[in-house]
């Protein structure tokens, strides 16, 4: 038995070919997208050139051009970067809030826990995405920041909070927590230094699976027009070109690369997440 959670996770990934491949492909893609995006002159890439519109793939434009005459490959790189940004921010912020809320609520109980459970029950009542759509359409001067804030507050942390709360309750019933209490350790120290390290593997696998899910959700919302603002290139926006039948049938270069990229990225992350999930549960480990 190994105690170092990170070592267990890495070993589980290394022994799972798909997870290892997924991790490598994901890291390579993310690094490529971010460095490539740095080399693109954004204002130049955004200039509309009507004479060049809807060109099929060619030597100068490997993925063709969009209805504004812009290079689709450049748009794809910028879109991917923007979509990755929002997904990372959303998932990281969601994890931090979810862990804090779940840990404190599960450990201290009382009124805080009651309030949290009421909020989470309220959420369980209807499709949360509907409420997000309502909120998004109500905000007058809507920007990337407001979208990020809305997604963080209304979507990103609830599942994690629920999970961490339950796991904290389970840990809190164990004697090592009682022991720390009798030894005069501060309750905050107990929750963060004693309990939290025991949840590392659960948190990591949950984070990874959330990352994949949030990519899909962001794409879906942006596709419907309730995601990243219109002026911000994003994968969902590129995929939304397919909503016009003419684009769908005759110009697949507009939307297909973005669709495949998002699918591939989610697949990679899910493969990694599944391996981490096994690492979090000693009974399911392969090695």
């Amino acid at each position: 038995m190994e105690t170092n959670a990170w070592k267990v996770m890495w070993r589980e990934i290394r022994h799972d070919k798909l997870a290892l491949l997924g991790l490598i492909l994901f890291v390579v893609t993310v690094v490529t997208v971010y460095t490539w995006a740095l080399t693109i002159d954004q204002s130049a890439a955004a200039i509309v050139n009507v004479r060049n519109m809807n060109q099929p793939p060619s030597r100068t434009h490997p993925l063709g051009t969009d209805p504004g005459g812009r290079d689709v490959l450049e748009q794809l790189v910028l879109s991917a970067r923007n979509s990755f940004n929002i997904t990372f921010i959303m998932t990281i912020a969601g994890a931090i809030i979810g862990i804090l809320v779940g840990l404190l609520s599960g450990f201290f109980g009382g009124h805080l826990d009651n309030v949290l459970m009421r909020i989470l029950d309220f959420y369980a009542m209807f499709p949360a995405l509907m409420l997000i759509i309502v909120f998004i359409s109500m905000i007058p001067s809507y920007s990337v920041v407001t979208f990020a804030v809305l997604m963080i507050v209304l979507w990103s942390w609830q599942g994690t909070a629920r999970l961490i709360r339950i796991k904290t309750l389970q840990q809190g019933a164990l004697d090592y927590v009682s022991a720390s209490k009798t030894m005069g350790t501060h309750p905050l120290v107990i929750s963060f230094r004693e309990v939290l390290p025991n949840l590392v593997s659960i948190i990591t696998s949950n984070f990874t699976l959330n990352l994949a899910m949030n990519m899909g959700v962001e794409t879906g919302l942006t596709f419907l027009g309730f995601g990243l603002p219109f002026a911000t290139p994003s994968l969902g926006r590129l995929i939304a070109y397919a909503q016009m039948p003419a684009n769908m049938t005759n110009r697949p270069w507009l939307w297909l690369p973005a669709a495949l990229l998002i699918f591939l990225m989610m697949l990679c992350v899910n493969f990694v997440g599944q391996a981490l999930n096994r690492a979090a549960d000693a009974k399911k480990r392969m090695v």
């Binding site: 105690t3 959670a5 164990l174 004697d175 090592y176 009682s178 022991a179 720390s180 209490k181 009798t182 030894m183 005069g184 350790t185 501060h186 309750p187 004693e194 390290p197 025991n198």
Partner: peptide, 24 residues
């Protein structure tokens, strides 16, 4: 959580497997 009393009274637990934090 902390008092001179806590220093003077301690506990030994039944479940030797869960009374020691596995991560420490």
């Amino acid at each position: 959580y902390r008092s001179p009393y806590k220093k003077s009274v301690q506990m030994i637990f039944q479940d030797v497997y869960s009374s020691l934090n596995p991560r420490k």
